[in-house]
Computed example of a mutant assay.
Amino acid sequence: MDKTTKITGKPKFMKELNISEIKRAILKNPMITRSNIASLTNISLTTVGNILTELIRNEDIFTGGYEESSGGRKAERYYFNKEKYHSLSFCIDNKSIKYIISNILNEETEHGELEVNDRAVREVITEFTEYTLKQKDIKAIALGVPGIVKDSSYLIKGPDGEWIKNDIGEFLRNKFGIPVILENDLNSTVLGFSINFAGKNKDKELKNLSSVYIDFSDDCTGAGIITNGEIVRGKYNFAGEFGFIPMDGGKTLDDIINDECGNEEYVETLVKLILIINYTINPGIIIMRGERFREELHNLVVEECKKHMPEGSFPEIIFKEHSFDDYFRGISSLGAELMHKNIGL
């Protein structure tokens, strides 16, 4: 039965709803036939046919051959024009800006690094976005940022410990009229790691994964957290700021690690951190990286942690070299999700 029979008086709304349902069916099932679309969406064959004709005319979809016939007329197959729309994602850190352009299937079509020199981040990103919009139909912009996200802005610590607000998201949305999403860099990274991990391990699903990705960077210790496939941000987007955790002697975790403490104190501090994480979140995997992570102590930290935990409840702890692969995957996935929403998927 056509969905228009369920809600009356709103034909335009119902047409948009039917188009969205049909687009989603084609996106999830490439080379699908009209009858299969009707079956999946509960939309009548006539309505499906009319909408398919419109989508082909607009070059949203293409036809791609025919289904094998069992005696009657062969059924045409349909698939998305994956290069019609794109998302533009940026990975911002303290030293560089990297970008990735993805198509509607979240397949990378282009990536690179932008020269910053002494220019402001906003200027560099604005200039590149203007250039890219002349080449492609960008339907979403995603920004991975090294700070605490507040709506379309983010906060970073200034040289004197003050919080500095950067409203780049709001600026880009107002300037280009394109939806913009901001996400913390480590949240993006743990999301990308989890997506990649699920892709490499077919017995794992993103919705069942819980991971903590800790970065012992030069200036602070922070983490991205995933539980049951969802990013944990906290009420005020402050989740994962482990460097502020109070430790012994009135010091924070960052105070101890930044003081270039001895190996014994270093191991003791990391063991406490891991136990706090495990008894609070109980993730399946804890990933560690960063300039201040002492890889040579990895095994000792693991063995000390196991002394305080029941057998079978201990997460896998791995060291990972710094790489933008996970960061790229996470932020581009958020960009693709926003793009799909913007084009009615």
Rank of each mutant, 00 (worst) to 15 (best):
T4S: 13
T4P: 00
T4W: 02
K12M: 10
F13H: 00
I19E: 15
I19L: 06
E21R: 09
I22K: 02
A25V: 15
I26F: 05
I26V: 08
I26Y: 04
N29F: 09
M31A: 08
I32P: 11
S35D: 14
S35W: 05
I37V: 15
S39Q: 14
L40N: 10
L45R: 12
G49D: 12
N50P: 04
L52H: 06
L55I: 05
E59G: 05
D60V: 13
D60I: 12
T63H: 05
G65N: 08
E67A: 08
E67V: 01
S70L: 06
R73P: 01
Y79D: 00
K82W: 05
K84L: 06
H86G: 00
S87T: 13
S89I: 04
D93S: 07
N94W: 05
N94D: 14
K95A: 09
K98Y: 01
N103W: 03
I104S: 07
T109Q: 00
T109G: 02
T109P: 00
H111P: 01
G112V: 06
E115M: 04
E115A: 09
V116T: 11
D118E: 14
R119E: 14
A120H: 03
E123Y: 00
E123S: 07
V124E: 01
E127G: 02
T129W: 09
E130N: 02
T132D: 04
G144Q: 06
G144A: 12
K150C: 01
D151T: 06
S153V: 00
S153R: 01
Y154P: 02
I156A: 01
K157W: 01
K157V: 10
G158V: 02
D160L: 13
E162L: 08
W163Y: 11
W163Q: 09
D167M: 10
I168T: 09
K175T: 11
K175F: 03
G177A: 04
V180I: 04
L182P: 13
E183C: 14
D185Q: 01
L186W: 05
L186D: 02
N187C: 08
S188C: 14
V190N: 11
L191C: 11
F193E: 13
S194A: 10
I195E: 06
N201V: 05
K204D: 03
E205S: 15
L206G: 03
F216P: 03
C220T: 15
T221A: 14
G222Q: 03
A223T: 13
I225M: 04
I226E: 06
I226R: 03
E230M: 11
I231N: 10
R233T: 12
R233F: 09
K235S: 03
K235Y: 05
Y236W: 04
E241S: 14
F242P: 04
G249F: 08
D254G: 15
I257M: 11
I257H: 12
I257P: 07
D259H: 05
E260N: 15
C261V: 15
N263D: 15
Y266A: 00
L270C: 13
V271K: 15
V271A: 02
L273V: 13
I274H: 12
Y279D: 01
I281G: 02
I281F: 05
I286N: 04
R292V: 01
R292A: 13
F293Y: 15
E295S: 10
K306F: 04
K307V: 00
G312C: 11
G312Y: 07
E316P: 00
I317K: 02
K320G: 04
E321C: 05
S323N: 12
R329V: 14
R329E: 14
G330Y: 06
I331P: 05
I331N: 04
I331C: 11
N342S: 11
I343F: 02
